[in-house]
Amino acid sequence: MSRRQFLRLVAGAGGLLAACRPKAAETPLQPHPGRRAEIRGICFDLFTLFDPRSVERVAETVAPGQAAELCREWRVRQFEYAWLRATAGQYRDFEVVTGEALDYAAGARGLSLSANDRHHLVAACSELTPWPDTRAALESWRRAGLRLAPLANYAPGMLSRLLAHAGLAELFDAQISTDRARTFKPSPRAYALGPELLGLPREQIVFAAFGGWDAAGAAWYGFPTFWLNRLGVAPEALSAAADATGTTLAELAAFVAR
């Protein structure tokens, strides 16, 4: 084979290989060590923005002297029941799960709740107090052009009532309830609602987690993840970890801008 014939063959093969090679847009993104995609949005767990301990003030009017213990048992059962139902294929939305968990917690402490007391306690979950830095941080991110959304296990009605009660609804581009996927975090289907409803790839959305388990779930899914550990709890012993950790939204803002 002459040199000229060889070059023609190589050129032809190169064209064939180029035609068969996946287009750049279809190739999975491989993050460069130490670098990441431009951040264009943030998804928040609700408790990074709202203090979950607000419920205890209402519980104290119903169960004086027992509010802290009641709420502690209630919170644990909320998540246990949510995950149990999701795993067993017996999904009910988080408002139903919240009522069921409250019934258990009250019974376990020997409390008999009236229908009115039960209603006020469940409603209190949609009347949480925002953390002091919440509004200013959200307004700053809005001015910067970031797309914002809570990504919460809350049922849609609970979520909309909470944001309306706090006067924060207009600061979000979407209100994302995992009810849309008929599951709860940390299911990947729950986190996938963020990119779907914000219209951004996951690599461009920071997920702000309140719980260490949620930070792990978001990291497993592929979000750039910030653990907002407001209450200073111990980290989870899992194989995934947040990219950064802090206790304030100012630290989250620095991570987003980095």
Rank of each mutant, 00 (worst) to 15 (best):
M1A: 14
R3P: 04
R3G: 04
R4K: 12
R4N: 06
F6Q: 13
L7C: 07
L9H: 11
V10A: 15
A19L: 15
P22Q: 11
A24Y: 02
T27I: 14
Q30G: 02
Q30F: 08
R36W: 14
R36M: 10
R36K: 12
A37T: 05
A37F: 06
G41Q: 04
C43H: 01
D45L: 00
D51M: 10
P52Q: 13
R53H: 14
S54C: 09
R57D: 14
T61V: 04
T61W: 09
G65M: 11
Q66I: 01
Q66N: 10
A68R: 15
C71A: 10
E73L: 14
W74L: 10
R75V: 07
F79R: 11
E80Y: 08
A86V: 01
T87L: 14
Q90S: 04
Q90L: 08
Y91S: 00
F94E: 00
F94Y: 09
V96Y: 06
V96R: 03
V97E: 02
T98N: 03
G99V: 05
E100G: 09
A101G: 12
A101C: 11
D103L: 11
D103Q: 13
A105K: 07
A106G: 07
A106E: 05
A106S: 08
G107S: 12
A108Y: 07
A108D: 09
L111R: 12
S112C: 11
S112D: 14
N116M: 08
H120V: 12
L121E: 04
S126Q: 10
S126T: 06
E127K: 14
A144S: 12
L146P: 00
L146D: 00
R147Q: 10
L148D: 02
A152W: 02
Y154T: 01
Y154I: 02
P156C: 05
G157M: 03
M158E: 00
S160V: 03
R161E: 01
G167M: 03
L168P: 00
A169L: 07
E170K: 06
L171S: 02
Q175T: 03
S177A: 12
D179N: 10
R180D: 04
A181V: 03
R182T: 03
T183D: 06
F184T: 01
F184I: 02
K185D: 01
P186T: 07
A190Y: 01
L193K: 00
G194H: 05
E196K: 10
L197P: 01
L197K: 02
P201K: 13
I205E: 04
V206S: 03
A208F: 04
G211W: 15
G211A: 15
D214A: 13
A215S: 10
G217T: 04
A218N: 09
A219H: 06
Y221H: 14
G222S: 08
G222E: 07
G222K: 05
T225D: 13
T225F: 12
L228C: 14
N229D: 15
L231Q: 14
G232F: 07
A237H: 13
L238H: 15
S239K: 11
A241P: 02
T245F: 06
G246V: 07
G246R: 12
T247W: 06
L249D: 03
L249W: 05
A250I: 06
E251I: 09
L252C: 11
F255I: 05
F255N: 02
